[in-house]
């Protein structure tokens, strides 16, 4: 029974990872790619870790996998945020059909001031 549940969880993890990589290929610009890929691939890896916990129970290997889940969540979300901010400051264009961009509306004037000073 445990083995069946863990196999189903591995299947769910594979499907989510596949959707994330498909989004990485199909979506038009870096911001949308980062969004789909981070969400889907992180949850896919978490599903595979959970399947290991269910298959082996709470011994040494299962507890290690349980500790790895929050580490994976926090590092992947913080990394995505840092990469998004860095690429926006570096000046990569958004997709041409984007609706609004309040961030560059608010920060563009300040950046010009700092570059003039330096």
């Amino acid at each position: 029974m445990n083995e069946l549940i863990s196999n189903i969880l591995i299947g769910i993890g594979l499907a989510f990872s596949f959707f994330g990589c498909l989004g990485l290929i199909r979506l038009p610009d870096i911001y949308n790619r980062l969004q789909s890929a981070t969400k889907c691939v992180t949850l896919g890896a978490c599903c595979i870790l959970l399947s290991l916990v269910i298959r082996y129970g709470f011994n040494d290997i299962g507890i290690k996998a349980l500790i790895a889940i929050p580490i994976l969540f926090f590092t992947s979300t913080s990394g995505a945020h840092a990469l998004l901010k860095g690429s926006h400051i570096s000046g990569f264009k958004m997709w041409e059909k984007s609706v609004t961009d309040h961030y560059s509306d608010d920060t563009l004037g300040k950046e010009e001031e700092t570059t003039e000073k330096t």
């Binding site: 989510f16 610009d29 949308n32 969400k39 984007s98 609004t100 961030y103």
Partner: peptide
């Protein structure tokens, strides 16, 4: 919310017309 987000991304990626309308809001 996390599981809902994944199905949302799967719908947007698998849809042939890609229903996205991105933007940055405050």
């Amino acid at each position: 919310q996390c599981v809902k987000a994944n199905f949302d991304v799967a719908y947007r990626v698998l849809h042939p017309a890609m229903p996205i309308k991105p933007g940055i809001v405050r």
